[in-house]
Design a binder for these strands. Structure first.
Lengths: 203, 203
DNA sequence: TCCCATGTTAACCATACAGTTAAACTATAC
DNA sequence: GTATAGTTTAACTGTATGGTTAACATGGGA
C-alpha cells in the first residue's frame, strides 16, 4: 500500500490562492490542480468537488483568523489592550497572507450566499467576542458607548482594504509611500480609534 | 424606422444587479437579459459583450459615487465638515444601493484586475481629493497628521462592510438591532473618527 | 514472484455558457 | 399598400469547464 505522496495542505494552499485571486466562480479547478502541481482528478480523489474545496479553504482560513483574534484578546490585560490586540492580530494576519481578506471581502460582497453554515457561525462567535469586549469596556468606563459592529467593521474593513489595495495604490501613484507593514497599518488605525483625528484627542 | 423601445438604463440596472450579486465571473449574460426582461441578443445589440456591459456598469456606478463625494467636499465650509460630508455621502450612497459597494469590494478583493483603466483613474482622483483635504486640514492645525489612505479606507471599508453585512448579521443574531440607516452608520463612524473610542475624547 | 491496495493520470463526457445569425417583426415614409 | 430601416428574438455554434472513469503505476506483504 502506497503512502500519501500529496498532502492535503498543498491542495488547500493552491485552492486558497486561486479562490482568493479569482473568486469561487472565476476559479478553475484545472488551475487549482496546476497550481498544486497535480492532475485535477487528484483533487477529487483527495478532497472532493469544487464546493468542498472551497468549504475547506474558507473554514481553514477562518479558523486561523478567529484563533489569532481570540488569542490576542485573551492575552490582553484589559479592554484597551484588547482592542489594540484585535487590530494588531487582524493586521498581522492580512500582512502574512492576503488570501483570507480577499475571500472574506468577496463573501461580504455576495451577502454570504456562498458561505458554508459553519463559516457563518464562526463570524457570529467573533462578533460576539468583540461585542462583549466593547460592552465590557464601556461598562467599566474605559470606552464610550460605541457600536461594536461599527468598530469591528471599521477595523476589518480598513485592514482588508488597505492590504488588498496596496498594489493598486502603487499603480495609481507610484510616488506614494509603498505598502504599509502590519505594524504601520495597526498603529494608523489604533491612532484614529484611540485619539480620533483631532489634535489633542484621546486619553 | 422604429424607435428605441428598450432604454440602456434598464439594461445597465439589470447588469449592475447581477454583477453585484454574483461578481463578473458568476454573472450569466442570460440572467442579466432575463432580469432586464429581454433576450440576450438584445444586450449585444444595445450595449455590447459581457465585458463592455461590466465596464459601463462600473464606470456609471463609480461616477455617481465619486460625484456625490466631490459634491459633499465642495459644499463643506471647512476640513472637518469635509470629512463628515465624505462619510455621510458614502453612507447615503451605500444605503441607497448596495450594488456599487458590492462591486467595489469585489474589485478590491481581486486586486483591481478586472477594473477598466478609467475606473482605476477615478479611484486615483478620489484618493487625491481625500489626501488634499486631510493634508490641508493638518496644515491648518485642524487634524492630527493621519494617513489619508488609512482614513479613507477606514471609512469606505466600514461603510461598505456594514451595509453589505446587514442581512448576514441579522441572520446570525436576530435579536441584534436591525440594519443601520445611512445616518446611523455615518454618525457611528464620525463619532469614532472625531472623538476616538475613549470617554472625553475629541474637541 | 505474484497479488492487491493505494495512488495517479490521460482521456473522456455532458453541460453550460458567451457570443452569432438569420429570420421575423414593427413603425414610419411614400 | 409596400418598401425600408431599425428592432427583437429563437435557435444555433463552438468552446471551456466541472466532474468521471478506466487504465496505469507503485510498493509492500504472502
Amino acid at each position: 500500500m502506497g503512502t500519501a505522496g500529496v498532502d492535503e495542505k498543498t491542495i488547500l494552499n493552491a485552492a486558497a490562492k486561486v479562490f482568493a485571486e479569482k473568486g469561487y466562480d472565476g476559479a478553475r479547478v484545472d488551475e487549482i490542480a496546476a497550481e498544486a502541481g497535480m492532475n485535477k482528478a487528484m483533487l477529487y480523489y483527495r478532497v472532493g468537488d469544487k464546493e468542498e474545496l472551497y468549504r475547506r479553504v474558507v473554514l481553514k482560513g477562518q479558523k486561523t483568523f478567529t484563533d489569532s483574534v481570540d488569542r490576542a484578546i485573551s492575552s490582553a490585560s484589559g479592554p484597551e489592550e484588547g482592542i489594540a490586540g484585535i487590530v494588531e492580530a487582524i493586521a498581522a494576519n492580512a500582512a502574512e497572507s492576503r488570501l483570507v481578506p480577499s475571500i472574506i471581502l468577496r463573501e461580504i460582497a455576495g451577502g454570504g450566499s456562498t458561505l458554508p453554515p459553519e463559516g457563518m457561525a464562526g463570524i457570529g462567535r467573533l462578533m460576539e467576542t468583540v461585542r462583549n469586549l466593547v460592552n465590557d469596556g464601556a461598562e467599566k468606563g474605559f470606552f464610550r458607548r460605541v457600536d461594536p459592529a461599527a468598530l469591528q467593521f471599521m477595523v476589518m474593513g480598513a485592514v482588508f482594504t488597505l492590504s488588498l489595495t496596496a498594489d493598486m495604490r502603487k499603480t495609481i501613484s507610484p510616488d506614494a509611500p509603498g505598502p504599509l507593514t502590519a505594524d504601520e497599518i495597526a498603529s494608523s488605525i489604533c491612532g484614529i480609534l484611540f485619539q480620533g483625528i483631532f489634535p489633542g484627542g484621546g486619553e
